[in-house]
Amino acid sequence: MSDPLVSIRNLGLRYGTFRALEDVSADFSRGTCIVICGPSGSGKSSLLRCINRLEEFQDGDVVFDGASLRACRDLPRLRSEIGMVFQHFELYPHLSVLDNVTLAPRIAKGKPRQEAEETARRLLDRVGIGDQAGKFPGELSGGQQQRAAIARALALEPKLMLFDEPTSALDPEMIAEVLRVMRDLARNGMTMLVVTHEMAFAREVADEIVFMDKGRIVERAETARFFSAPTAPRAREFLDRILHRL
């Protein structure tokens, strides 16, 4: 791991007196797909949100592509290199799907409308909703909305994609279509950090699993090893519970 894309160093995040993250350190290399799992409240989402500084952490630092986030003076530029997908999609309800995807490239990156729209249509085709471009988010199913949100994040040609529980708000029959898009992305070499409870997805797609508990990383292992023989007792317990439910 000579040149990691993301390097987290002794990261600490507090909300008032509650410690959401404590002394978290980890490197993530280019082209890998990492699944972050753990019980709720373990700090998974907080970790993700620190990586594009949606959370202002107090201690430590995150180095993205060689640049320190703490020292970053141009957050918008940094964020435009990191795509993020949210649990509740957060598509802009007052804009068409196409405008949702083209807004940031046009406004933040100054691309001409025509170029932005061509890219957007290509991406919408890629996630399988090319025919929905003219509709408003409210007219789409949950699975379609989440795929549109993925297209919106991809439109910035990001170096890294963050997925914050992308399927938790979806009905079971729509989860598969979103996971399929994510799997294709991973296969094409996108660097991805995915917070999810979808263990089947993790087992199939992830290169490594990071297990968090109480604001710390308690286990990190290659996928096969994590599922066959987790070392941390908390991770074993968690796996037992979540796999038996499946």
């Binding site: 964020r79 290199e81 598509l91």
Partner: peptide, 30 residues
């Protein structure tokens, strides 16, 4: 307007002012 809307806009590289202008205020106005 849900906070996630502002965060989504910021996460795509819009500045705070742009996020207000293009995402939050139009919804708020409605």
């Amino acid at each position: 307007v849900r906070r996630g809307q502002l965060e989504a806009a910021l996460s795509t590289g819009l500045t705070y002012a742009q996020a207000m202008r293009f995402i939050v205020l139009p919804q708020a106005l409605r």
